[in-house]
């Protein structure tokens, strides 16, 4: 893989308040991207923000001779603020695809996606691929957000999933409360070997999902997020605690051993929000 290469902003728009969808024209090497993998992105010829930012991949597709990569993000700080000002034709530096994506079974009855906020991004990409690659699987999605204004990617996910259930913290849309609560009401439908659960969202949400699923006979993978400097396993900035056994145990790198982990292997006893 080459170090950072150029990518051109094809389009960018604000989807809902403070959330942006940027479409990048990238090299063909990104066609092999898998759901759950991420890219490191940096402004070209500008030292601010200083470090690259990791973004999970929202979608990758080819159109004619071109390959497009989509990133769905929320403005949370200096870096995302700077990216939100990008316009068509601007050039970025991009590295990827990086990390380990979701395990996608060749056969499966039910795919259950549980998303918190912009955590929908990698799950939407996963849903696209499950729809394409797994024959006859039913894909259902639980999405939670702070309020109606923060519900992103609804159109796309509703186009793929047979059922989409929504929760908002303030009750402005769907179930009033947390998305894990909403999922808990239905969870007995999925407690078998023919279902797979995938989740991405804030750490407190993943923590409560972990509690719900403890000891239950269902496979669940989560995509984790941490601050990163390099994205390639060198800076050791993005570590999370993993129970011993799985990928060595102890503090492992989200960028290299992850960002996707089995929820049962993540050690939620003392950290991760």
């Amino acid at each position: 893989m080459k170090p950072y290469i150029s990518a051109t902003v094809f389009s960018q728009r604000e989807t809902v308040g403070g959330h942006f969808l940027v479409v990048l024209k990238v090299s063909d090497s990104f066609r092999e991207s898998l759901p759950g993998q991420f890219v490191m992105v940096r402004m070209k010829s500008c030292d601010q923000p200083f470090l690259s930012r990791p973004f999970s991949i929202y979608s990758v597709y080819s159109h004619g001779k071109n390959t497009f990569l989509e990133i769905l993000y929320k403005v949370v700080g200096k870096g995302t603020e700077a990216f939100s000002r990008l316009r068509e034709g601007d050039i970025l530096n991009i590295l990827g695809p990086l990390g380990k994506g979701f395990d996608i079974p060749s056969e499966c009855d039910k795919i259950v996606l549980i998303a918190g906020g912009v955590g929908i991004a990698p799950l939407s990409f996963l849903a696209e691929r499950c729809e394409r690659d797994i024959n006859g699987a039913e894909i259902v999605c639980y999405i939670g957000a702070g309020s109606l204004e923060a519900l992103v990617s609804l159109d796309r996910i509703e186009g793929i999933c047979s059922v989409v259930k929504i929760s908002t913290d303030d009750g402005s849309w769907g179930h009033a409360g947390s998305v894990t609560e909403l999922f808990r009401r239905d969870m007995e439908l999925y407690m078998d070997n023919d279902s797979r659960i995938y989740s991405c969202g804030p750490n407190p949400m993943l923590r409560s999902l972990n509690k719900l699923l403890k000891g239950r006979p269902v496979a669940c993978q989560v995509s984790l997020e941490e601050r990163m400097a390099c994205g390639i396993g060198a800076c050791l900035g993005c570590v999370v605690k993993i129970k011993s056994g799985d990928v060595g145990g102890g503090l492992v790198r989200v960028c290299k051993e992850g960002p996707v982990f089995d929820i049962s292997s993540v050690d939620y006893s003392e950290h991760n929000g």
Binding site: D47, F50, G79, E226, R227, A229, L236, G237, K241, L251
Partner: peptide
């Protein structure tokens, strides 16, 4: 094992680790 996370933070023209 090293220190518990978070371990890095961007700063003006640099980073803390």
């Amino acid at each position: 094992d090293g220190n518990p996370p978070p371990r890095i933070m961007e700063t003006a023209s640099g980073m803390l680790n």
